[in-house]
Simulated scan of single mutants.
Amino acid sequence: MNKKIVYGIIATLLVVLAIIGVNFYQKVFGNAVHKDGAIYIKSNGTLTEVTQQLSNFIDAPENFSWLAEKKKYLTPKGGKYVLKKGMSLNDVVNLLRSGNQTPVNISFNNQDTIEKLAGRISQQIEADSLSLVNAMLDAAFLNTNGFTEKSALGMYIPNSYEFYWNTSAEKFRDKMLKEYKRFWNNTRLNKAKDLNLSKEDVTTLASIVQKETAQKIERPIVAGLYLNRLKSNWPLQADPTIIYCIKQEKGQDFIVKRVLNKDLEINSPYNTYKNTGLPPTLIAMPDISTIDAVLNYKKHDYFYMCASVDNIGFHDFASSLAQHNRNAAKYQRWISEQGINR
């Protein structure tokens, strides 16, 4: 055979091999991910499901499936995985195979019930709301850690926390218990002791203060007022506890715009018009700022407060019943003018 022909064949083969090599390299190591983003792999997720999610980030998901099989990535590890524009398929497979997931920041505040809290958390991690409720209200867990179904909400301190997305309901609950114990450090415990209150008492009072005013600047004043009543063995007469009682009877979605005299007769240990002292447990989830407002309450001689007509959203405080009656009459006239009956 003519040497030129042989050389030509060899050259052609080399070119073909070079093209195949370049294509293979590009297929495996070339830029594949065309945008930044993240995928969320379920704890029992399948490779097919992973490939479907990746189809939003790569143009040839079948190439990913091929490479995943070659690299023995067959059983996905659950979690959130962040993809960067320009990553190769090899980068993606290595990331997913390593299980090096990215944590998520979850947050919650002002959830009035365990069920509402579970619903909020289930929007941010893999665990569903039912499994979260079951874990949070597990009788053995509550008994071991000194909580009841009514007081369990107090274990969850509103804030932002870092979790892995595929955290189970039980692990979420257990970590929140650790955060609760960390929150109640010696400084806070000593301040509670100075008030002759337990940490549970502080949380209960804070939940009332939280519902009484949305104004952070007022909360230390309101806390001081309730502490004045407690020290004098007065009933707290806190409307938020009456609203809590009404919602216990009529459902959490029932809207109360005005507390009526008949509501004050509700027979419940949470009715602070009929009972002295604090109610048995918290009535809502207080913010950290509100808990600290109780622990660092403002000292004064106020025993009465009434929603302000002149400064909407705030309260008028009084030391005497006569002044309070004037404030209350002014408010009642105003609220009737607004046509608010319930």
Rank of each mutant, 00 (worst) to 15 (best):
H300P: 00
P280S: 12
P269A: 00
D301W: 05
N271D: 12
L282G: 00
V294N: 02
L282V: 08
I291Q: 08
Y270H: 09
K298N: 11
T281L: 01
N271G: 12
P280C: 11
D253N: 14
D253I: 01
L295A: 05
Q252L: 09
K262C: 05
M285K: 02
A293E: 06
Y270I: 07
K274S: 12
K257F: 09
G251A: 04
Q252G: 15
I255D: 10
S268M: 10
L282E: 05
H300T: 09
Y297P: 00
L260S: 07
A284L: 04
F254H: 15
A293I: 03
D263F: 03
L282S: 02
D287I: 04
G251V: 08
L264T: 11
G277H: 10
Q252A: 10
A293T: 03
V259F: 08
Q252T: 13
G251L: 06
D263E: 11
S289E: 15
I255C: 01
M285T: 04
T276R: 14
I288C: 03
V294H: 04
A293R: 00
M285C: 08
L282W: 00
K257M: 05
G277K: 06
I283P: 00
V259H: 05
D263M: 03
S268D: 13
T276S: 15
V294A: 06
L295G: 02
Q252R: 09
S289G: 15
T290S: 13
N267T: 13
I288K: 12
V259M: 08
F254D: 06
Y297E: 04
D287E: 15
K299F: 05
K262W: 09
N275V: 00
D263K: 01
M285L: 09
Y297H: 13
N267W: 07
G251N: 04
V259N: 02
F254Q: 01
P286I: 07
D253W: 01
R258Y: 10
A284I: 02
N267H: 14
P269M: 02
T276D: 13
T290Q: 08
D292P: 04
N275P: 00
D287F: 11
Q252C: 02
P280Y: 13
T276Q: 12
I255T: 11
Q252F: 09
I288N: 04
D301A: 12
K257A: 08
D292H: 06
D263C: 04
M285V: 06
T272H: 08
K274R: 15
T276N: 15
L282R: 00
S289M: 06
I255Y: 12
V256C: 05
S289N: 15
K262G: 05
T276C: 08
I291H: 07
I266S: 01
G277A: 10
N271T: 12
L260F: 13
I291V: 13
D253T: 13
S289I: 09
V294S: 06
N296Y: 09
G251C: 03
I288A: 04
D287K: 08
I291Y: 10
I291W: 11
V294K: 01
A284T: 10
M285I: 07
H300G: 01
L278R: 00
T276P: 00
